[in-house]
Amino acid sequence: MKLSQRIAIVDDERAVRSGLSNLLQSDGYLTCTFESAEAFLNDKNALFDVSLMIIDIKLKGMSGLDFYEEIKTYATPPPVIFISGHGDENMQRFAISLGAVAFLRKPIDIEVLLNHLQKAIRPEENT
């Protein structure tokens, strides 16, 4: 099955959503953005054709970690990269232990992000 390369970005900061979306689109990815976990969960088509999710840990309303726990209950959850301006090594270890692909601190190193995306979305190209 070929993945769509569509990435969902969930962050309560408009500048982060917009910046990541523009960056990823310029690299050839399709994106959809959401300002909260609730906005994502209330959109019946949000998970349709999503290859990967980028989720901020600290969201207004439901936290990014709680949101991820909810997503993991779906039949085929997409891989997740967490981002945070407030994270520490313990949070990073916890996020990875939950099954996240990566945990990146803001400001995000773009090359590191793109490398994680490549590995998560196109694993056959990294073998």
Rank of each mutant, 00 (worst) to 15 (best):
T73G: 00
Y74E: 08
L65D: 07
K119E: 11
S97I: 09
I110V: 14
S36I: 15
L98W: 07
I121F: 01
F103Q: 02
A75D: 15
A46S: 09
L24F: 03
Q92H: 04
F40H: 00
H86D: 10
I54M: 02
S4F: 05
A100G: 09
K106G: 04
G19S: 04
P123T: 09
M62P: 02
P77T: 10
L47Q: 07
I7F: 03
K60S: 14
A100V: 05
K58V: 14
D43R: 00
K60C: 10
R14S: 14
Q5S: 08
L24R: 03
R122W: 14
F103W: 01
V16S: 10
L104C: 05
I81D: 01
D88V: 06
N126M: 13
L65T: 14
P107W: 14
S4D: 08
D109N: 13
E125W: 09
Q25D: 13
A75H: 11
I9H: 06
L3T: 13
Q92L: 07
Q25T: 15
E111D: 13
H86G: 07
L59P: 00
A100P: 06
L114H: 12
M62Y: 11
K106F: 01
Q118S: 15
S21D: 06
Q118I: 06
E13S: 11
M62I: 14
V112I: 14
F48W: 13
L24Q: 04
C32N: 14
E125R: 10
S51L: 01
P79I: 06
M62H: 08
S21G: 14
F94K: 15
S26R: 12
E13Q: 15
R122S: 14
N126H: 12
A8W: 04
L65I: 15
E124N: 11
V112W: 05
A100L: 07
T33D: 15
S51G: 03
A120L: 06
P77W: 08
S26A: 12
